[in-house]
């Protein structure tokens, strides 16, 4: 098992080298949908982190009981349980934000990122490795969401987390908070990250 990454390596890998959005292209639906404002993006990242950590932990604990044919169904049902918990917690304690995020919280269930981490890492590794992998991936996911949301919110409304950062004379680029802006922002940022990663490889 010497070629398997250590837990610390997995944690660091998840942040940029194997960033879920920019390198693996997983979990793009929430990245485009909730990144109108930083607050929504950070809340979504926190929800995904909660679900990913809990699902990885549970999957790792039951990894020896999984039958090969049924494992995806078992992962999905576990994730659905934790997403229900997260959704109800959010609706109870942050009702306005829950309304803003709308249907995208339950859509965490089919977020490819979580199923992929369960399949690739948690179902084969002990608990601590799975937890550090989940922590790294969710940190990377949060960074990705925050980067897109930062660009969209600053250019689209001149605010950052609700605080005005651009002068009031800034003509808000309304397209940034609408669907086309989401696609174009993510596309350009993805190109930038590809360029940066490709530079080192030459």
């Amino acid at each position: 098992m010497a070629d398997q990454p250590t837990p610390l390596e997995r944690f660091i890998q998840g942040i940029l080298p194997e960033n879920p959005v920019y390198r693996q292209l997983l979990g793009l639906c929430p990245t485009l949908a909730v990144t109108n404002s930083m607050k929504a993006a950070v809340t979504m990242a926190a929800a995904v982190a909660f679900v990913l950590l809990c699902a990885n932990m549970v999957t790792s604990l039951i990894r020896n009981l999984l039958k090969p044919h049924l494992r995806i169904v078992v992962f999905t049902l576990t994730i659905a349980t934790f997403v229900t918990i997260a959704d109800r917690l959010l609706a109870a304690y942050m009702y306005q934000m829950s309304k803003t995020l709308g249907p995208y919280i339950p859509l965490i269930i089919v977020n490819c990122l979580i199923i992929c981490r369960c399949e690739v890492c948690a179902s084969k590794q002990p608990v601590f490795t799975a937890i550090s992998d989940a922590a790294g991936q969710s940190l990377g996911y949060g960074l990705a969401l925050a980067s897109v949301a930062g660009v969209r919110e600053i250019l689209g409304t001149g605010m950052f987390f609700g605080f005005r950062v651009l002068p009031a004379t800034w003509p808000d680029w309304a397209v940034m908070v609408l669907p086309p802006g989401a696609f174009i922002t993510l596309g350009l940022l993805l190109g930038a990250v590809n360029w940066y990663s490709g530079r080192g490889a030459k």
Binding site: L25, P179, P180, G181, A182, F183, I184, L186, G187, L188, L190, G191, A192, N194, W195, G198
Partner: peptide, 14 residues
């Protein structure tokens, strides 16, 4: 080269 694949798809999708 950095835009080949997903990045240009997203921009066109926009």
């Amino acid at each position: 080269k950095p835009f080949k694949g997903a990045a240009i798809t997203l921009v066109v999708g926009g």
